[in-house]
């Protein structure tokens, strides 16, 4: 019976002994690192507005910023396919409504400026570009803590055809573009998009006494709406 009593005592004390912190000698501890290594850290766990495999439709209006002799207002649209969350390919185009800028009247009335044939100056009328879009930034914003909206920042590169028009006739040529845009989504499918693009193309320089073709740069800002399909 004494043995049984001792056994019970040992079992009872062993429970308390388990609570003690056991310190091992250095050489008895594992030597290799046990820190986890994350090869592919994922900053955004679940995107509310996923892009991969979706088609994006867009429509926009805008204005060119730095044409000296014409104010042009593009009305355009585009369709693109998102290969994954970061890369997309698409087609964009626009038709431009144009009017002469204030500088034409101002220059023609200046001494020595009355002979410039501004009516013969070509102006960008339309373009149709194939475009690649890279979207490295995706996030969310809070407007005074009352709601969350998702946003993206993207860069684009494009190339295609430009159509020019003037009193002397129409012309077309090759052009390319580079841009930066930002989308703001109200739902998982619908959002707005602001875009700043630089267009590069050749056109006749009518300021020269003997006009010749030169590379022109046209900056354009646009604001539009986007819709992603299939709807979520």
């Amino acid at each position: 019976m004494r043995h049984i009593f001792l056994l019970a005592l040992v079992l009872t004390i062993s429970g308390i002994a388990k609570a003690e912190t056991i310190k091992f000698k250095e050489e008895e501890l594992a030597r290799e690192s046990v820190l986890p290594v994350f090869d592919q850290p994922e900053a955004v766990k679940r995107k509310l507005v996923p892009f991969s495999g979706r088609v994006e439709l867009e429509a926009y209006v805008g204005a060119t910023l730095n044409d000296p002799f014409f104010n042009t207002y593009p009305l355009g649209g585009g369709v693109s396919y998102h290969l994954n969350e970061f890369h997309a390919l698409g087609i964009v185009g626009a038709y431009h409504i144009t009017q002469q800028s204030q500088y034409v009247a101002q220059i023609q009335t200046l001494p020595g400026g009355s002979t410039i044939p501004f009516n013969a100056s070509p102006v960008l009328q339309y373009f149709a570009f194939g475009e690649y879009e890279f979207t490295p930034y995706y996030g969310k914003i809070s407007l005074t803590k009352q709601g969350v909206m998702n946003m993206t920042i993207s860069g684009t590169l494009g190339a295609g055809f430009v159509g020019l028009t003037s009193a002397a006739g129409s012309d077309s040529g090759f052009g390319f573009s580079g841009g930066l845009n930002q989308r703001l989504f109200f739902t998982r499918n619908f959002g707005i998009k602001a875009d700043l693009k630089a267009f590069f193309y050749q056109q006749n320089d009518i300021v020269q006494v003997t006009p010749s073709k030169k590379l022109f740069t046209n900056l354009m800002v646009t604001l539009g709406v986007v819709y992603l399909l299939p709807s979520l």
Binding site: P41, E42, A43, V44, E85, F86, P136, Y137, Y138, G139, K140, I141, S142, L143, T144, V148, M151, I153
Partner: peptide, 19 residues
């Protein structure tokens, strides 16, 4: 400064920002 948020770069890091 009414808007603030955070944006992920290539889904690898987070950048807080204010608008």
């Amino acid at each position: 400064v009414p808007v603030y948020g955070k944006i992920g770069w290539m889904n690898k890091s987070i950048i807080p920002f204010d608008f």
